[in-house]
Design a protein around this nucleic acid. Structure first.
Length: 423
RNA sequence: GGUGAGGUGGCUGAGAGGUCGAAAGCAGCGCUUUGCUAAAGCGCCGUACCCUUUAAAGGUACCGAGGGUUCGAAUCCCUCCCUCACCGCCA
């Protein structure tokens, strides 16, 4: 959520930053300011009336204490009550409307974010490793996995429909191996604390991290209980500290968490044809940080490096791109995507998206800290995948496939997987 | 699911229709005194919003949430949420 005072006082700056995203957000600014003006003038009138009422009521108390008659004064103040109630209602309505409008507004891109309209304008920041050479034509993970009996889409479809998968045998074991490998790496070598949260969350939590109110159609909802399936661990983990006032000594908070992620993928066509790449449910290890504002960009670089380390250890070629203003997610002010090379796809797959949200989420969830001068300020929040499991699985299968259709397991995974190859 | 007890500032905890934004204690900040890994005394010390300015002053609201009664609600009434205890059910 953007600070209404910033919008009020630096209107042109806000408008131009929003315009850099493309879309229509910047066209809403005038509407918000109009609502803000009306709200404030209503509040001022209300408060004047309340002040009058309070003064007179105190006088009544004082007179009664002296045993004087107060009937005439009471009659005088009685009429005020209705006016107060009316203005109170109007003011509450305007405040709610202003909040709704602000919740619909995306974050301002960071000043240094590259300008651009869409993904084609995302600059490549760096690459690591090289595309592997094959003496044969590399197969897709779908073909490899199904012939090795690692997973089945057909069986998953029987129980849950399309775009679900059931890992089986060595595939199920590899999923579990990757999970343990990732959590161990981040908690033992990168300084994250492991948390295991509920997977089902309240709407307030989703408002806090900004999936709601705008992206409701992407979420699985349990209507009877007003709960949603978490689309990413970002939601439960960041909201762990909602409505809190943290001490400086508690920062930075660094969490690593495994959760399944549930996404309706409404509007995505041809979902079922791409194997493990886009599914309604997938596993992910997420990294989340809550930090002081002064440190958030440095922490973003470290977060990205921590996620990259996964691919380096597994020997997978990847590149890092930065999202341009037009491709930036709703709540992010700066984002790096990590894309791993998938030989069977002859393309890069996004396995991690590392973002700094500035105080955008913290304002929504009222997450603050007490700074060294004793002032309460909003924290900055960050998150990034460390990493998504199925796409990592895809890259491993396609990168380490052998001519005979078996797949070598990279050395660091062997203790977790329990064997040197699949098949 | 049932019964009971509770939800008050960063924390602990009083208050039971008017002078209560709310005692006291702890923590924190400042000063004083004495001195070595500290003690005592005094003072300050909630948040949000509004107005005016951006320095200070002022105003309004906030005692789990939302309604109601009243000239006036932390205090009385209703609904809901949460916490704790016991019982029931159950991985």
């Amino acid at each position: 959520m953007i600070d209404i005072r910033l919008i009020r006082e630096q209107t042109e700056f806000v408008r131009s930053r929003l315009a850099a995203r493309g879309g229509e957000a910047h066209l809403r600014v005038e509407e918000i300011l109009e609502c803000d003006r009306e709200r404030r003038s209503t509040e001022t009138r209300l408060q004047q009336l309340q002040s009058d009422r309070k003064r007179i009521s105190k006088e009544i108390g004082a007179r009664k204490a002296k045993g004087e008659d107060t009937a005439s004064v009471e009659a005088e103040v009685r009429g005020l009550g209705e006016d107060v109630a009316r203005l109170n209602e109007a003011s509450a309505l305007l405040e709610e409307r202003q909040r709704d409008l602000l919740l619909q507004l995306p974050n301002l891109p960071h000043d240094a974010a590259p300008l651009g309209e869409d993904a084609s304008a995302n600059p490549e920041i760096r690459t690591w490793g090289n595309r592997p050479d094959f003496s044969f034509s590399p197969k897709s993970h779908v073909e490899l996995g199904e012939s090795l009996g690692l997973f089945s889409f057909e069986r998953a479809a029987k129980i849950s429909g399309s775009a679900f998968v059931c890992f089986t045998g060595a595939g199920a074991r590899m999923e579990r191996a990757l999970l343990n490998f990732l959590l161990d790496l981040h908690t033992q070598q990168h300084g994250y604390q492991e948390v295991s949260t509920p997977f089902v969350v309240k709407p307030e939590a989703l408002v806090g991290t900004s999936q709601l109110p705008k992206f409701e159609e992407q979420l699985y909802r349990c209507d009877r209980d007003e709960l949603y399936l978490a689309p990413t661990a970002e939601v439960p983990v960041t909201n762990l500290h909602r409505e809190e006032l943290l001490g400086l000594d508690q920062l930075p908070v660094r969490y690593a968490a495994y959760t399944p992620c549930f996404r309706r993928e409404a509007g995505s066509a041809g979902l079922g044809t791409r194997g493990l790449i886009r599914m309604h449910q997938f596993d992910k290890v997420e990294l989340v940080k809550i930090v002081q504002p002064e440190q958030s960009f440095e922490e973003l670089d470290r977060l990205t490096a921590d996620a990259e380390r996964v691919l380096q250890i597994l020997g997978l070629h990847y590149r890092v791109i930065e999202l341009c203003t037009g491709d930036l997610g709703f709540g992010a002010c700066k984002t790096y995507d990590i894309e791993v090379w998938a030989p069977g796809q002859q393309g890069y797959l996004e396995v991690s998206s590392c973002s700094n949200f500035g105080d955008f989420q913290a304002r929504r969830m009222n997450l603050r800290f007490k700074d060294s001068e004793g002032k309460n300020r909003f924290c900055h929040t960050l998150n990034g995948s460390g990493t998504a499991l199925p796409r990592l699985f895809v890259a491993l299968l396609e990168t380490y496939q052998q001519p005979d259709g078996s797949v070598m397991v990279p050395e660091p995974l062997r203790p977790y997987f329990g064997a040197a190859k699949m098949g």
